[in-house]
Design a protein around this nucleic acid. Structure first.
Lengths: 333, 333
DNA sequence: CTGAAAGCGCTTACAG
DNA sequence: CTGAAAGCGCTTACAG
């Protein structure tokens, strides 16, 4: 910038004015400065700008896994909001590890992002208190914040799961298995609670062997599903409820290799669910809406809103496609 | 930092040393400074650091659409590489619009990212020349750079498409349709070239109505596929080759609603392709490897490599699953 | 309409 | 082992 000013024979401030399109510069001066900028290949350094202005016009998005299709529409919604507000998006995965989440979030804070959208892997976010106090707008999405009071946007996991399990019960099932994500994850325990509530409301017993929380790795899900379907020494389950899309996809593969039909309802919709045979009945959540709601909240805070942290609960929707409407086999009743 | 130094009764430089874990500070001093940092809730401002050091330890990733599942594994691979090198990832979508690509890329350059990984939407990247000259390492992936010489990592679209179409021909098809992405997109025209080559090598004629490049929007793909399958006044095609995963998914939906079986091979693998009936035969490319190769190249440049721009061409793999092995109907020969 | 001075929060190069 | 000075490249607040 110094060089540009020297070459154009003007002051630093005038170059700054031209670069930022500020008014109050003679057209002729503008031309001279512009020529000088082009000749020298000048490119404004936003780091220096940030240092003076305070705001970086960037927000951080931390989620579990960039490649999980569930987060695709959510990321896009956050990106669109950022773009609409002239901000850039810094994106990172926690790989579901609390330490990695914290490391990433603090790195983003050191870069002075204006705000954060976090799908938490950790259950203790007290490490964020100084950052929030220092003005970093923070919104948690998909799962709640741990041990701090903050804005949160969730899908209604409990009601969704209860609806899904009630649907299976309405179609005649009495022995229903639940396969979900690790118990540390809030959505996993909420969906399990929905399952238990639906069963209790129907006056049905839940055998311990029908419930499995754990890693969503295909190997583990496959083994779990097979155990429930083969019913070690007792009557097997006639229906399965899956806690998220990763589990559902693996269970669909398992069922595909079996002759006896098993009813299935999965939490989360996924592409092509309608083209499988049977189509997979799901509890759909609106991932894009999750992202939109969170970003809206975030940018409202950046615009100065200082009301108490809010909690949004987005409804889910049951989409019947065939797999959830299969009756139990006649000999299983 | 000034406050921390004052409170601890030391100089600025000593605080800097403690914050960065540099050696040459008495344990006792370290303790005093650390206590001061904690008490004041000090958080280092990386913007200032960047301003002095020159490097930002961040890289930009620009692609078409954050929510497209094809880019998930690629993004993850780039993120892993960034993480391994202590860099953060700034992520943005071009929405396939050249202007938006340029705007985003230049914004990333103004933030002084150390490097860029770009899936280009534009076909003219001369706007990047000053940036590259100024030292921004740049690698293009999935599609080549336009009008500049730069590092490029591609899948072998031509050979992949030729293999796929030859596969259909080997299974008896003579009238094969090609539905691809917009002609502006390099992969679309390369795959079309593969199609034409395979047809020519088999001595087969290509009717103009069998080839359609254009938007991958479901409505347009659906209409195009129906026109080819109904053969306006002439014998219909007995097989379709789809130019990418978005097209394939829509065509699978179209075929699902028809009685007459039609053979299908799609470029790009996708989740659950094997569970459809019939399973969808695809030309798979390794999206994660695309990301890994590009990042490796990028970080090698950041480590000082200054050899001529290189061009990588990654092989594709035909995965037969049923849809590509369907013979033409007996009355169609 | 234009510019000189001070400062954002760090690090570099140097001296003690 | 420790620190004062200068500077990274901008913008702010002010004066002309």
């Amino acid at each position: 910038m110094k060089d540009v000013a020297a070459r154009a024979g003007v002051g630093l401030k005038t170059v700054s004015r031209v670069v930022n399109g500020e008014p109050g510069v003679t057209p002729d001066t503008v031309r001279r400065v512009q020529e000088s900028i082009d000749a020298l290949g000048f490119r404004r350094n936003d780091s220096a700008r940030v240092l003076r202005k305070g705001r970086t016009a960037s927000i951080g998005l931390v989620l579990e896994d960039l490649a999980d299709p569930f987060y695709g529409p959510m990321s896009r919604a956050v990106e669109e909001a950022a773009r609409a507000h002239g901000a850039l998006l810094i994106h990172g995965s926690s790989a579901e590890e609390p330490d990695r989440e914290q490391e990433l979030v603090l790195a983003l804070c050191a870069r002075r992002v204006d705000g954060l959208v976090i799908v938490p892997a950790s259950d203790d976010h007290r490490y964020l208190e100084p950052e929030i106090a220092a003005g970093v707008a923070t919104v948690f999405v998909d799962r709640p914040a741990g041990r701090i009071d903050a804005d949160v946007v969730l899908s209604d996991s409990f009601s969704g799961a209860r609806d899904g399990v009630a649907h299976l019960i309405a179609h005649g099932h009495r022995r229903i298995g639940f396969i979900g994500d690790r118990p540390r994850i809030h959505t996993a325990t909420e969906r399990l609670r929905g399952y238990r509530t639906a069963m209790a409301e129907a006056g049905l017993r839940v055998d311990d062997s029908w419930v499995a929380l754990g890693s969503t790795e295909p190997e583990r899900v496959r083994a779990t599903a097979c155990a429930m379907l083969d019913g070690a020494g007792q009557p097997p389950v006639t229906a399965l409820f899956c806690g998220n899309n990763r589990v559902t996809v693996t269970v669909v593969r398992v069922l595909n290799g079996r002759v006896r039909p098993v009813a299935l309802v999965g939490f989360d919709d996924f592409e092509l669910a309608d083209l499988l045979s049977p189509g997979v009945t799901v509890i759909a959540q609106d991932a894009a809406q999750l992202g939109r709601t969170a970003s809206e909240r975030l940018f409202r805070r950046l615009d100065g809103a200082s009301d108490a942290p809010s909690h949004f609960l987005l409804p889910t929707r049951l989409i019947p496609r065939g797999s959830g409407e299969l009756p139990p086999p006649a000999d299983a009743l």
